[in-house]
Write a protein that binds this DNA or RNA. Structure first.
Lengths: 222, 222
DNA sequence: ATTTCCATGTTATACTTATGTCACAACAAT
DNA sequence: ATTGTTGTGACATAAGTATAACATGGAAAT
């Protein structure tokens, strides 16, 4: 499935947006007419549709209605018209958000990332033999539940949700303990140690939670 | 290094922006004149400069030019003038974006976060057979990971992100060690040496990190 | 009330790695 | 050749991290 389907007849504008989105690791496809959009959607689906209202032939409203007949795929309406009726019309039709042309590219990106977050946030994270359920806050290793203290889960989630990223000790500390906390430094390393004992196969040679010397820690996926 | 250096003579405006940015966890410093800005930049560096054009004394364009002489740090121009020439001037000078006064704070924040994403969330910098992953802070040569110390990575990044530009020893030193550091001179050359041993094909004839005699070093792309 | 238990912090110490310094060699520029 | 600058290797030290053992304080159990 494609992440984002852009429906826009101005090719340059579509391409520009496309570039920015791909730079943020979305997969993107572009349709220049409503008809094309529907057929692409039929064929490949999409997680989000960025839909210009003003289209040659079949207009954006019609596309929106058609898509809503069969799914709840989020739709972000783009329109050059500033009239209120459009805004209303779009949202009533089931669009999830609205942006006016000409738009600032950063605002557009922020809106899109917001929609993805709200709509596609996951509550189960799996990495190798580890599985974390964010809702129940339970951790399984090889399907066997592991007792975790709140702080441990917080720390693990923070690391695993930034898999591959090096997080500074300061950042980790502020996120878990709050920047106004008194305790420091060693507290973090001690908790890292406990976490390793629970999730690493060999706590002596941690593969998952790796030390980045002088900086912090990072979680490496398996 | 500071995240954002605001150059703005209207103190209230600067403070306001400053507060918003700090709330988003950027570190911020403010300069009210061009001269102050340059000296702050020399001393502490910055990841982004938000630069008002209309300044008492040395104007924004001059500041922009000066900074461009020694680095590629992104610059966001702020201007009350709406004339096109400004826009051009600013962008030609190498500014990365442009915003008009009075600006909407949300747009400003979106632009800034956009610049940070595009510029610093670039995971990978590739140059020939060298690949640096900034988020995980790992360096690969021919896909083989190379062990790097924090200072080495900092130094390499600073050089490679200003590819082709000669960075003075003083600038390099201030950026990596901080201008208040005691140690000096030889420390830098020693670190350069270590870096060369790790990334040059022939450490005796360094191609990437070139010595600019009497001035400093520059990274030459392959 | 008292005890027990457990998550969490703290501290001291061993250990590992990075960093800075120095003396001297090599080098470019004049 | 002389001078100032840069490169090098050996070494000392500083800084960061891991670990174990212990302290604390609140919640649950008795």
């Amino acid at each position: 499935m494609t992440d984002i389907l852009i429906v826009e007849d101005e090719k340059e504008l579509a391409d520009l947006l496309c570039d920015f989105l791909r730079a943020e690791n979305y997969t993107v496809s572009v349709a220049q007419t409503g008809e094309k959009a529907l057929s692409l959607y039929e064929k490949y689906g999409a997680r989000l549709i960025v839909l210009d209202i003003m289209l040659p032939g079949m207009d954006g409203f019609a596309v929106c209605r058609k898509i809503r007949e069969e799914s709840n795929t989020p739709i972000l309406i783009v329109s050059a018209k500033t009239e209120k009726e459009d805004k209303l019309n779009g949202l009533v039709l089931g669009a999830d958000d609205y942006i006016e042309k000409p738009y600032d590219i950063d605002i557009m990106l922020a809106k899109i990332s917001g929609i993805f977050k709200r709509r596609y946030a996951v509550d189960e994270i799996i990495d190798g033999d580890i599985c974390i359920n964010k809702v129940s806050r339970t951790v399984y290793k090889n399907d066997i539940p592991i007792e975790m203290t709140p702080k441990e889960i917080d720390l693990l989630l923070l690391l695993i949700e930034n898999k591959g990223k090096t997080l500074t000790k300061e950042f980790l500390f502020n996120q878990i303990w709050g920047s106004d906390s008194f305790s420091e430094q060693q507290t973090l390393t001690v908790h890292i140690k406990w976490l390793r004992q629970k999730i690493e196969n060999d706590a002596k040679k941690p593969l998952r939670i790796q030390t980045v010397w002088g900086v912090g820690y990072k979680y490496e996926g398996i």
